[in-house]
Amino acid sequence: MTGRREELAAGWIEVVSRTLATRVSRAELDRELHELYSAIVEALGSGGLDTGAEAWTEVRALLVELSRNRARQGFSPAETAVSVFALKAGLERQLDQGSPGDVAAYLTLSRLTDALGMFTVDSYTTTREQIISSQAEELLELSTPVVKLWDGVIGVPLVGTLDSARTQVVMEKLLQALVDTGSAKAIIDITGVPAVDTEVAQHLLKTVVAARLMGAECIVSGIRPQIAQTIVALGIEFGDIVTKATLADALRHALRGLSDADSVRGRGASQA
């Protein structure tokens, strides 16, 4: 394998570049695969065939880097794995002119390539999962802003589907904002929520009750006609929770409540 290095590497690169021709530059492939090739040759020379052994550390590191790059650039698992498996194709071609000893060597190398290929797909998947989970987290953060609408009134405009994880974040953010701003009123606007089922309604109710426990009033606004019908059809009871059709109505209600509280405070002060 060392002797026919250039030849083999060239064959390898050719097969890989035929598959990925349009998406990775030839020079880049050249560099990547040459590095990998020398690492494999070196590992073969110094250690056994166990790809988990220490001699293969560098090969593994290179493969991880390769699959990571491929995952980031949006290649499919097959396109990533081909980089490794194509090594076999190059070897096969050499087989035609080889001796019986070469066949045995080819089989050994073939097993080795399989192991390395598995490893590549493995690390490709891991990277993909990392990317997905970090994106999901970012989305969660982005999608739940808490805004101050007035002195003592905060609002949470909800957009998109509500699930348990998201409602948990909304709940925590809303309650924390109540404490931070000292607001006694909160408006949850669900204009942007496409559908309300029993689970979503349950979450909303919990948030309202939690806010009430902390001494703040929660108003649910932005209930579209269609959603109002669904809620009634599902038999969900909102009880004594204030619900309004529009954010404007909710704000008016909140401000009226606030002015009452202010006059109360004024009266209390004059008494004291």
């Binding site: 709940m171 925590e172 309650l175 924390q176 109540l178 404490v179 000292g182 607001s183 006694a184 919990k206 009750v209 939690a210 806010a211 009430r212 426990l213 902390m214 001494g215 703040a216």
Partner: peptide, 28 residues
């Protein structure tokens, strides 16, 4: 009047199914 309940405490109580009916609450 129960005042100054923390968000985490409020969430816990709701998850436990306690709504403290009949208790007035205030932020501070």
């Amino acid at each position: 009047v129960v005042v100054g309940m923390r968000p985490a405490v409020a969430i816990t109580l709701v998850e436990l199914g306690l709504s403290l009916g009949g208790v007035r609450t205030a932020l501070n």
